[in-house]
Design a protein around this nucleic acid. Sequence first.
DNA 1: ACCCTAGTTGTCTAG
DNA 2: ACTAGACAACTAGGG
Length: 501
Amino acid sequence: MSKVCTVVHWFRLDLRLHDNYAFRNALNEAENRQYLLRPIYLVDDDITRKIGVNRLRFLIQSLQDLNSNLKKLNSRLFVLRGKATEVFPKLFDDWQVKYLTMQVDIDPVLVEQDEVIEKLAEEKDVFIVRRVQHTLYDVHSILKKNNGSVPLTYQKFLSLVSNIQIKDSIEITKKVPDQCNPVDIASNEYNVPTLNELGIEENSLGVCKYPGGETEALKRLNIYMAKKQWVCTFEKPKTSPNSIEPSTTVLSPYLSHGCLSSKHFYLKLKSIENEMSHSQPPVSLLGQLMWREFYYMAGAGTENFDKMVGNPVCTQIPWGKNDEHLKAWAEGRTGYPFVDAIMRQLKEEGWIHHLARHMVACFLTRGDLWISWEEGAKIFEDFLLDYDWALNAGNWMWLSASAFFYKYFRVYSPVAFGKKTDKEGLYIRKYVPELKKYPTEFIYEPWKAPKTIQITAGCIIGEDYPYRLVDHDKIHKENIKKMSAAYKVNKEKKSLKRKLK
DNA sequence: ACCCTAGTTGTCTAG
DNA sequence: ACTAGACAACTAGGG
């Protein structure tokens, strides 16, 4: 007896049912051809080495939510363990797969993997459908529109996409017919793994401020979209990096995992903006989505986008190496309370405000520690719930003045910057509790506090809280000179290249 | 080739 | 609370 054929939808960074064209495609195909439908997710065996614990928790929660939403459609999520390139050849045979749907991704590791999968599928006669649904625009067609070169300014990017229409978002409500479900539909073999099963002590993790999942994403989106006045007056630079509760939406982790469709978000914003006057890109909420598109396009069109060497858009800067300083930065013990508070919030909660990212990124690179942005990007990859390959590399290059942004002499002060929105240092007191009792006068510069005050506040600088690693006022000026020299060399190289042509 | 303009979000001081 | 200028002078894109 020949087995019934199967349609597989491979969930990756599209952990949702709304606005998921690729999944709808699979569902329709299974129904029309009377094939079996298996929505799958692959968990790599070394996942715990690749993803930080907070993000792993977010992912597992997202998978659980996806599974329960699929169950409402009379289906389920089939979670499989192993590497895609090893799992698929077996699946193709075992399940008689005829049709595989998935979304298009940009991360070169995934792109490379997809090429292998595509080849394997071809050999086994599996038809693959890939849909652009993680971004608003098909980045490759934008690049083509710009004669194959990457626009290096946001405004240029906006002009390229200005007349592209965004299609409607879709809702999937149709239930999967019983005959499309395989016999092992209820098997525990395919359950979403728990954190404990992955070797993570769940109660060793901090409070979960941002639970993963499509349900949570849409709930969060709707809360913010209900505040129409807030949406329409939103200007990113005017939001606070150090408020105790986030001053922005924190939808980014949901976008990066695909729990929220960027297109769904975009269309909501558009319909609100149609009703009243509103702020504009780059500072508006819609402008934030456009930044995401901008970096996706840059990432897709640039070789070695996540590295300095061999990256054509990245200025080559002779960064130093200092593992002690790097570690202190990552662990929130630079001796600059604002920087340390941010890094500790990042590690504990997995999310920090965009401007807080500016502060610590500038501090690590061109501002103070003179350490490569690649090192910072790796730490962010570990800690951020909203880690996103293209955005992470792009923003790190921006902040280190390696690409997209060039005014390297504008340096964030670890003392002055935070004071603008938090004079009392309430944010520092929360995340660096050893300084909780410091007088406001010294909360941003505790090393200036007289010994008697340090004793009264119960925190001796150099013992209970570190002495500052560097003297910002002095070192940032030296670093500006180094940047200037690096730019000069870069310029000479460029003009030499032009002459050679 | 050259010049001009604009660029998501700096800091500090003086008024 | 705000605005303007000094600081020292960046690059990409467009004309």
